[in-house]
Structures are given as C-alpha cells and as structure tokens.
C-alpha cells in the first residue's frame, strides 16, 4: 500500500514536471533535437577513427553505434527520470531538502524524481535509434531496454552516493561531478582499448564496466548469463545509495551550515 502510494506520487510528480517543461514548447523540443544531434556529432569522430583501423577492441562500426546508443540510453534514463540525484549536493548544502523531510514519503525517491530534463529524452530517443541501426530485432530491443534501465539506475545510484558525501564534506559536488562524468566519458569508448590498471579501475571504482561494458557485450553476444548479475549489481547499488543517503541525513543542517569568514 505504501509502495503504491509512493508510486502514485512519483507519477504525479513526473506529470507535473512534464507540464512545467512543456510551458516552453520550443525549448522543450529544441532541447530534445539538439541532444540527438549532439550525440550523432560525437559519433562522427568514430568515422574518422575507422578510416585508420578496421576494429577497436574487437568492435566494428556497428558495435560502436550500439555502445554509443547504450551510453546515451543509460545517461538518458538517469537524467530524464532521476535528474535531481545529480544535483543532490546543492540541495543538501543549501538546505533544500526541508520540504521533503516533512512529507510522509521516502525522501530520496521524492527528491530525485522531482524534476525531469527534456534533453535527456533526446538521449533516450537517440539510444533507440542507435539500437535499431545495430539490429532491428525484438529480442535486442527488449534486452537493450532492460539493460539501459539497470545501467541508468546504477548511474543514478552512483550520483546519489557521491552527492550524499556532501553531508560530510562541503566540496563533494566536485567529487560527484567528476565521478559521474568519468562513467559517461568511459562509456562511449570500447573496453577493448583499455588494459591493465585502467581496465581494473573501470570494473571497480568507476562502475562503467558493470553499468555499460558488460551489458553491451551481453547484447552483442546474445549472452543472457550476465543479466542476472547486472540486476543484482543494480540492486546493490540502489541499496547502498539509500544507506549512505539516510546515514548522511542525520547530519543534515538545513542550510545552517554557512561557512563563516574570518
């Protein structure tokens, strides 16, 4: 019952956020279109790279398109539906959680679902276009959908975890921004080009291996064995995000933590 009510509030919150964004239809649509173009442009560099070499880390051009689509998809899911997870630090430091704390709902869920970002929808559309270019196939489509959702949730959890460090460290927004952009940077390059320490880091500290590389490989190889692993990793990340956030909440200062100048 509580879960049902929570979902109802989240959906209502999406609806209202959507209405807010739709107030300015031109910027809503141009945001979406430009994000799609943006991604398409960035794929352009690969056209040049493929004139120099036939494959990168075992991936041909088609696979790279899929990789790009997948990266855009996880980013899109995370930013379209959980945008505020990426700005939690600001909300924490400047005391903007008050309104959520007095509501009888889960604070982290209410906060991160309180806004949508239109251009992230452009990412999702781009993701599916890329997915269809890779292969117009219902199985690929379903697998892709499931895995961009788990990937997006892992990215969101990472953002929530790093941003929650603001309860302890004031400047942790830099850490959070860097951590999130690291995932996004690496997600658009095939893991085959990395080796040694870098590769090790990509599957541990920066979870781009779990959120992006393994899923893309699963889709390419039609390998279902790692899907369960992915879902499990996703659940762990979410659980960890909740634990860190609620731990930190006890230290929340509601904007009273202004630093004094001497």
């Amino acid at each position: 019952m509580a879960a049902k009510n929570q979902i109802k509030v989240v959906l209502m919150s999406y609806k209202y956020s959507f209405m807010r964004e739709m107030l300015n239809k031109t910027s809503f649509i141009s945001g979406i279109v430009f994000m799609m173009l943006n991604n398409a442009c960035m794929v352009g560099q690969w056209i040049v790279l493929f004139t120099l070499k036939a494959d990168f880390g075992g991936y041909g051009f088609r696979e790279i398109i899929l990789l790009w689509g997948f990266a855009a998809g996880t980013y899109g899911v995370a930013h379209a539906f959980f945008a505020q997870a990426f700005h939690l630090s600001d909300l924490i430091v400047n005391g903007k959680l008050d309104a959520y704390l007095v509501q009888p709902k889960n604070i982290l869920i209410s906060v991160i679902t309180s806004a949508i970002i239109p251009h992230a929808l452009g990412d999702i559309i781009f993701a599916y276009v890329a997915c269809f270019i890779y292969s117009f196939n219902i199985k690929v489509f379903l697998l892709f959908t499931l895995l961009i959702i788990t990937g997006g949730l892992i990215l969101t959890s990472l953002a929530a975890i790093l941003n929650s460090l603001s309860f302890w460290l004031k400047n942790s927004d830099i850490i959070a921004d860097t951590g999130v952009s690291a995932v996004i940077f690496f997600a658009t390059y095939p893991d085959g080009i990395f080796h040694g320490l870098t590769k090790w880091i990509l599957f541990t500290i920066i979870p781009v291996g779990i959120a992006n590389y393994i899923p893309v490989r699963s889709i390419i190889n039609c390998d279902y064995s790692l899907i369960l692993f992915n879902i499990l990793a996703c659940i762990l990340f979410i659980a960890f995000a909740f634990i860190i956030f609620y731990r930190g909440l006890k230290r929340y200062a509601s904007g009273n933590l202004m630093s004094a100048r001497v």
């Binding site: 004031k170 200062a253 009273n256 933590l257 202004m258 630093s259 004094a260 100048r261 001497v262």
Partner: peptide
C-alpha cells in the same frame, strides 16, 4: 550544535 567551517581570506 552546528560545526561551522571558518575560512580565511
């Protein structure tokens, strides 16, 4: 009690 960070110029 709040812990306020002091910052020098």
């Amino acid at each position: 009690t709040f812990k306020v960070k002091l910052k020098e110029k």
